[in-house]
């Protein structure tokens, strides 16, 4: 046996020399080139009309899209404040929605018909009616219930709350968005919980864990992997749904943009301003989602794939030594 091929258990059965590496003529893809060329022309046309074409309004100068106006308003204090309120609406409604969703999902899975029935009814109502209607509803509910009284049912009361003063537009919108989100989240969480293998609960129970603890420590962490991607989806969706709050005059991004354009008639420009903010916020959220999902993937994949940052660093490391070698042949 030759000494050149001692690696590998089957080396005896193979011939001593490795055949030469295959160098074949690759398949040509003319269709791809044609499609690429067509797309390139379309992109060029889009860039041209967006950036370089001039306004058609008589007596005015500047680009057709009025980018100077966009630039002027993008970081104006009103718009920034509007973006802030949009973010607040989203974060508060999402947090409340997730908590509510977990609660309702657990109720749905309860053995008590009464409890699971109530949970089903809640999801039925709030998924079955438009969010816009719900926002109006909670905004005008104070007309039906000007005062809310806390106390013993049908008995004495302790505190009376003036709903008109408490439930302003912002909180009415938050309440509507939270309750609506809770209904959707409950289905997402429920799907996650029932996806966890029954053996996990049995193993937890045989350690003496109670149902609540098994749910918290064993089932939910594993359900998270399934719950998170749609929850990220919901958050991004919520960011945009929150614009519906403009109908009850919550000063969020869309409402602010509408207000400004009602005064200066730069409707498209302010819609672009609002869109840039929405896009920026959804981008940040998507990045956050990526890292949260990675965190909960522990144990589910043998080795976590590197993050884009880690990949970049590694690629840089590859580049450097090659350059080094090239410099000293």
């Amino acid at each position: 046996m030759s000494t050149s091929s001692e690696s590998g258990p089957n080396s005896e059965t193979h011939s001593a020399t490795k055949p030469e590496i295959i160098k074949a003529v690759p398949v040509r893809h003319p269709g791809r080139w044609v499609a690429g060329a067509v797309l390139l022309v379309l992109v060029a046309m889009a860039v041209h009309t967006l950036v370089f074409s001039q306004t058609q309004i008589p007596g005015q100068r500047g680009s057709r899209f009025g980018w100077s106006v966009v630039r002027e308003y993008l970081f104006s204090s009103l718009v920034v404040k509007g973006a802030e309120i949009t973010l607040e609406l989203t974060v508060v409604s999402m947090l409340a929605g997730v908590l509510l969703g977990v609660l309702v999902a657990v109720m749905r899975l309860s053995k008590s018909r009464m409890i699971s029935g109530v949970a089903w009814f809640y999801a039925w109502i709030f998924r079955g009616t438009p969010v816009l209607v719900q926002i109006y509803f909670w905004f005008f509910i104070a007309a039906l219930y000007p005062h809310i009284t806390l106390g013993i049912p049908f008995g004495p009361s302790f505190v009376t709350i003036n709903l008109n003063s408490v439930l302003g537009a912002f909180w009415a919108a938050t309440l509507a968005l939270s309750l609506n989100e809770g209904a959707y989240m409950s289905e997402i969480v429920r799907a996650g919980i029932i996806s966890v293998d029954e053996g996990q609960v049995e193993a937890a129970q045989s350690l003496g864990m109670r149902r609540g603890m098994a749910l918290r420590r064993i089932v939910l962490p594993q359900a998270m992997r399934l719950i998170l991607p749609p929850t990220g989806n919901e958050t991004i969706s919520m960011l945009k749904t929150s614009s519906l709050a403009s109908v009850i005059a919550v000063n969020e991004l869309t409402h602010v943009a509408n207000n400004i354009s009602a005064q200066n008639y730069k409707t498209i420009q302010l819609l672009i301003v609002a869109s840039i903010w929405y896009l920026a916020m959804t981008t940040v959220l998507s990045i956050g989602q990526y890292y949260v999902e990675r965190h909960f993937a522990r144990g589910a994949t043998r080795a976590l794939p590197p993050t884009p940052l880690q990949r970049l660093k590694r690629n840089l490391r590859y580049v450097r030594p090659q350059n080094h070698q090239a410099a000293h042949p």
Binding site: D197, E202, S206, A300
Partner: peptide, 24 residues
């Protein structure tokens, strides 16, 4: 439920499909 859990904690069980907690 509490009493059952207390009794279970004194009896250990090993399953056919291991049922280790994959996230831990």
């Amino acid at each position: 439920d509490r009493e059952i859990c207390a009794k279970r904690s004194e009896i250990a069980m090993v399953f056919q499909r291991f049922n280790l907690f994959p996230h831990l």
